[in-house]
């Protein structure tokens, strides 16, 4: 190995991730997010507030501060009030 070869560091680029998002009672859409973005980021990407929805993966809620790992999620608009 040549010791004098200049080190080459590839620019770190976040790969995109396609996620299928079904909003219950509304529609289904494809959303492209960066790797490492959270479920809350995904919710904001479809124009929703994380406070008004729950994200479900396979029917179970997932923590919204966790990075997205599922390629298909369900967004449930919460029913609550006073």
């Amino acid at each position: 190995m040549r010791a004098d070869r200049p080190a080459f560091v590839a620019a770190e680029q976040s790969p995109d991730m396609d996620v299928t998002v079904e909003v219950v009672g509304e529609d289904t859409r494809e959303v492209v997010i960066d790797d490492g973005e959270t479920y809350a980021d995904l919710v904001r990407a479809i124009g929703r507030s994380p406070q008004e929805v729950t994200v479900l993966v396979d029917g179970s809620p997932v923590p919204e501060d966790q990075p997205v790992t599922a390629d298909s999620v369900t967004v449930l608009r919460l029913i609550k009030g006073g």
Partner: peptide, 19 residues
């Protein structure tokens, strides 16, 4: 809801199952 006397929150998993 934590205070069901004055608030309601439908359990999300149950809401999804019902739908």
């Amino acid at each position: 809801a934590e205070t069901p006397q004055t608030r309601y929150v439908m359990d999300p998993e149950e809401q999804f199952e019902i739908i």
